[in-house]
């Protein structure tokens, strides 16, 4: 498809969101260049130091530089957000499209499966799957893919159900197009806008649950720098050294904020919620 670029005034929300996420992505890519210290180097002489010129965000109970740990942590957390959204999005889109398009038995079976998954609380199901697979990032991604696709499937299915009766879909059938052509070339491109918007807010949820799971000791293992672990580790020292918890916590909030701004702007541009 050739998209003639329309001169359109830039959406300020989109620009701001992209700037925030882009900043974190840049930090993650250039971590070895910009981080002032090694994120796992323990300096016994500099424990629990408050923010200063030498350590802008202070140091933790092992004397590690918090700023460096946050910069390196961006690598892990961004990866979690992207992979944790990508697989559910793809799986959910395919399953939802098939259920909506074919209807009948296919639809009934897939929808009951979704009901079963939704019957469990999200985190409980995630934790059980990770507990079975063993702690670690790859278990987290697998659990996310197994559980997270249901919302995408329901979104796409609802869209396809509406669109398959639209005149252009009927027209496509009446012109002798094959089922897969009608579904993948005509219906799917017109139904993904809502999911793309949702996947931005979903990235926020993934980020938070990733942090929560690391916090519970089932995700990223120490001493790897990850914001969720950093929050967990700092908790014990909250009364003496607030900076250990505050800065990684703020990073999570900012990145989440960036994603949700992109989601909002996309929704506006694509006319999902007019």
């Amino acid at each position: 498809m050739s998209a003639p670029a329309l001169p359109r005034p830039l959406n300020p929300t989109l620009v701001a969101g992209l700037a925030i996420v882009g900043l974190f992505a840049l930090a993650a890519l250039a971590a070895p260049l910009i981080a002032p210290a090694d994120p796992i180097y323990q300096d016994a002489a500099a424990r629990l130091q408050a923010p200063s010129l030498a350590h802008p965000f202070g140091t933790d109970n092992f004397g590690r530089d918090i700023l460096s740990r946050i910069i390196y942590g961006a690598r892990v957390d961004l990866q979690m957000a992207v992979i944790g959204v990508f697989f559910p999005l793809v799986i959910g889109t395919v399953i939802g499209a098939l259920a909506g398009f074919f209807g009948g038995l296919v639809d009934a079976v897939l929808m009951r499966l979704i009901d079963i998954i939704l019957a469990f609380p999200f985190l409980v199901l995630m934790l059980s799957i990770i507990a079975i697979l063993g702690p670690g990032l790859s278990s987290f991604y697998i659990a996310m893919a197994l559980v997270g696709w249901v919302s995408y499937a329901r979104l796409i299915r609802a869209q396809i159900l509406v669109l398959k009766n639209a005149d252009y879909a009927v027209a496509a059938v009446s012109l002798g197009f094959s089922r897969s052509r009608v579904l993948f070339r005509h219906l799917l491109p017109n139904s993904v806008a809502g999911s793309l918007v949702f996947c931005m807010s979903d990235a926020v949820l993934v980020l938070l649950s990733g942090a929560a799971i690391s916090y519970l000791g089932l995700g990223v293992q120490p001493p790897t720098a990850e914001w969720g672990i950093m929050v967990a580790e700092g908790q014990a020292f909250l009364s003496q050294a607030w900076w250990i918890t505050l800065f990684p916590g703020l990073s999570i909030v900012f990145l989440a904020f960036g994603f949700s701004m992109i989601g909002d702007a996309l929704g506006e541009i694509m006319g999902v919620h007019e």
């Binding site: 639209a166 005149d167 252009y168 009927v170 027209a171 496509a172 005509h186 017109n190």
Partner: peptide, 10 residues
């Protein structure tokens, strides 16, 4: 079809 916009893939 009736609706000229809805009958074409946007």
């Amino acid at each position: 079809f009736q609706d000229p916009f809805n009958s074409l893939n946007a």
